[in-house]
Design a protein around this nucleic acid. Structure first.
Lengths: 335, 335
DNA sequence: TGTATATATGTAAGCGCATACACATAAGCG
DNA sequence: CGCTTATGTGTATGCGCTTACATATATACA
């Protein structure tokens, strides 16, 4: 390549990178040679000296959970527009996998990791940071120590609960996410606070813990139904699930039991995944700007890389209430 | 690190890789030092000399299409079990993005790319191969030149069509995928051949081309409905969409028009994405082993890397008919 | 005309690792 | 005991690139 252009490798490097002084003539000869040889720089070799790999990792529980593909898409779009590649890492919410991935990413010297934590562990994250790897959390918070992009879960859960209360429900069950996640705690808090503020007594027998997967929505619903007789208006008349997947599971069980949604029991989800609008009854839910979360997370991490000392960046997006058929009877019209 | 262990860097390298001769004592000292310093090998640096990056790329149209996350998951699971990382690349079926990504991947020296092609271009793939990058196609075929993992689309489409014919339908519309994709062509062929074999005349006015996205299902359905009066049993009484997303779009339009599925028009999809089983009516479809496709693709590409000269590998999985409510009236039971 | 400054290019070192090669020691065998 | 072979370790080179440094020419200005 240097030969082909008749210059030294240093000049080639400068020409290709536009760094330092290079005469117009030399630059042109280099470019011509590059084209002629179909030359492409070895990014890995460069990263050996530059320290930058232009790679970020996206570590999440499971891409198969419909919430994440949109986030991933957002990340990738912003990243690739800025010359970064993104590695996909599924942890299954498994502590072991999570930590294995993190050490793998360290030894690959990724520039940053966008992290939807399953196992809240500050020390793990600090290890990355100490290695000079930027970290930004998405969706799942971890105290106020790290950069994060999330939605306001308390507000979202209040939106949902208030919607239900506004419909006249006072006995509202809550299917929570994994208790150790801040996301779950916040949504629970929103649910509880909304209830309190309306003067509705909080009953902890109405709360069941799930794990965000559809099957756990089934189980939670069964649990709830053994605790209460659903025909009894003093049991519960509405269910608020901390995510759509669990809501889908709940609806399934309800219908199998001959209960009508929303006539007998109203159901609210959270996330607004694609399923929500095509299932029947169409699911009322709290929409999160998933794609934007991913996009902004990527933007944030890239910003962070150039400003390692900058103070904590926190981006809290607003969720939105989407009312469909699982909470209010469709009046008029067909179907 | 070498200092810490009191040996030369060569010995360190040999100890860590288990290559060449290393005394038990030296090995132990190296391991101890590694642990003490929390040392992790720089994989990039190693790849400079070894030529292997232990990275594979997954290039697909859009992770947001529910068909792909499962495939991605399969790829990642196999890959990570074997020490590989996977980069995610969305092309949006856009020729430019696709080719940009491929050159990016070349300059990053990925070991292989698992490719769900949107723009059938052999020369692009050959460029990768010439660079020593392994390639295996998933889902989308491209003649018989490259390694591939797919399902038998002709058989799948025949399964679907025969199911519809068995139900008494003779006027079956077909919403096709993008015409340039082999996948689309194969499914179309299965549809057509099944019809012929039953002695049912093929009518090309019953065929509309979509692009695999939900919106195109809408459009295709509108098109079909302007071509024929749906009340007319000589128009069409069933629709077979080349994927579930378009089927969902079609169902939506049908219902908006006051037509009942399956009473007035039966609908079949293809893929069996998560939505299919929770939408109402639950969608009859052809299930593809998505996760397995990804898994096997990863297995194949890793095998290919060690046996570059081996003859073409072709893995054709079998699709499966899943009958739900969009084709047959649910008898008895509730909901 | 002499000196400072901008422009241009090459040489060499080093990023973190693998490995060929030289060398040293131990073990096996006639 | 001398020779071959197996074992163990260090030195040095190079992977493809960036960059500090040295050097050289052109331009500017006093």
């Amino acid at each position: 390549m240097a030969q082909e252009a008749g210059v030294s490798i240093a000049t080639v490097s400068r020409a290709l990178n536009g760094s330092g002084y290079v005469s117009k003539e030399a630059r042109e000869r280099v470019m011509a040679a590059a084209r002629a040889l179909d030359y492409h720089m070895n990014v890995n070799a460069r990263s050996l000296t530059s320290g930058k790999t232009y790679t970020i990792a996206l570590v999440l529980p499971d891409v198969t959970n419909p919430f994440f593909p949109a986030v991933a898409r957002g990340v990738e779009d912003y990243a690739s527009d800025n010359g970064y590649c993104v590695m996909l890492c599924n942890t299954d919410g498994n502590s072991r996998k999570e930590s294995d991935y993190l050490t793998m990413l360290r030894s690959r010297k990724v520039d940053g990791v966008i992290f939807a934590v399953s196992v809240p562990s500050k020390s793990r994250i600090n290890t990355l940071l100490d290695d000079g790897i930027a970290v930004v959390l998405v969706d799942r918070d971890l105290g106020d120590s790290y950069d994060i992009v999330k939605t306001d879960n308390i507000a979202g859960a209040m939106l949902a609960t208030n919607h239900l209360v506004g419909l006249g429900h006072t006995r509202i069950a809550f299917i929570s996410g994994p208790a150790q996640l801040a996301t779950s705690q916040e949504r629970f808090r929103g649910y509880r606070d909304a209830l309190m503020s309306k003067g509705i007594p909080f009953d902890d027998r109405l709360v069941v813990e799930g794990d965000f997967r559809m099957e756990s929505g089934h189980e939670a619903m069964y649990q709830l139904m053994t605790r209460f007789d659903c025909r009894d208006r003093n049991g519960f008349t509405a269910v608020f699930a901390a995510n759509d997947l669990m809501a889908v599971g709940a609806v399934t069980v309800l219908e199998e039991s001959g209960l009508r949604v929303p006539a007998d029991v109203a159901v609210m989800g959270y996330d607004d995944i694609n399923i929500a609008s095509v299932m029947r009854p169409r699911l009322s839910t709290i929409a999160q700007p998933k794609y934007e979360m991913g996009w902004i997370a990527a933007e944030t991490i890239i910003k962070r890389m150039s400003e390692p000392k900058e103070s904590r960046m926190e981006e809290i997006l607003q969720p939105m209430l989407v009312v469909r058929d699982s909470t209010v009877e469709r009046r008029g019209a067909l179907a």
